[in-house]
């Protein structure tokens, strides 16, 4: 209820989003976690991309390259899974 009101009152309420509580006085872990959240959400990437103007030819190049990379990675992952497939009761005997 309170949260809803706060969100309605302000589009960017502070200390709701992108906030991590520090546990056991471990500031470094909290910073690392928040950095990871930012990275996963693509905020760091967007920050990097919008720092300087990206010319249309650069955007085209980047998008094409990302496409190529995604296809390559997908194929490679499938290949590696195929090579490393296991068909035995215990996939890694003696490795407990």
């Amino acid at each position: 209820m309170f949260l809803t009101l706060k969100l309605l009152g302000n589009r960017h309420p502070s200390f709701i989003a992108r906030t991590v509580f520090v546990k056991n006085n471990n500031v470094e872990d909290a910073c690392r976690l928040i950095n990871r959240v930012l990275g996963k959400d693509g905020i760091l990437e967007q920050f990097r991309l919008t720092r300087y103007y990206e010319k249309p030819f650069q955007t085209r190049r980047r998008i094409n390259h990302e496409k190529c990379k995604a296809i390559y990675n997908e194929d490679m992952e499938r290949k590696i899974k195929f090579v490393l497939r296991k068909n035995r009761h215990e996939p890694f005997p003696g490795c407990h």
């Binding site: 520090v22 928040i34 920050f47 919008t50 300087y52 103007y53 010319k55």
Partner: peptide
């Protein structure tokens, strides 16, 4: 923290826009 303050939470408030005005030209 080293200065002796107790930090309760860490928030990121970096200004990021998905439809920004045209940024400055690239270096």
């Amino acid at each position: 923290q080293m200065g002796g303050l107790q930090i309760i939470s860490v928030t990121d408030n970096t200004r990021v826009s998905w439809n920004p005005p045209r940024p400055r030209k690239a270096r």
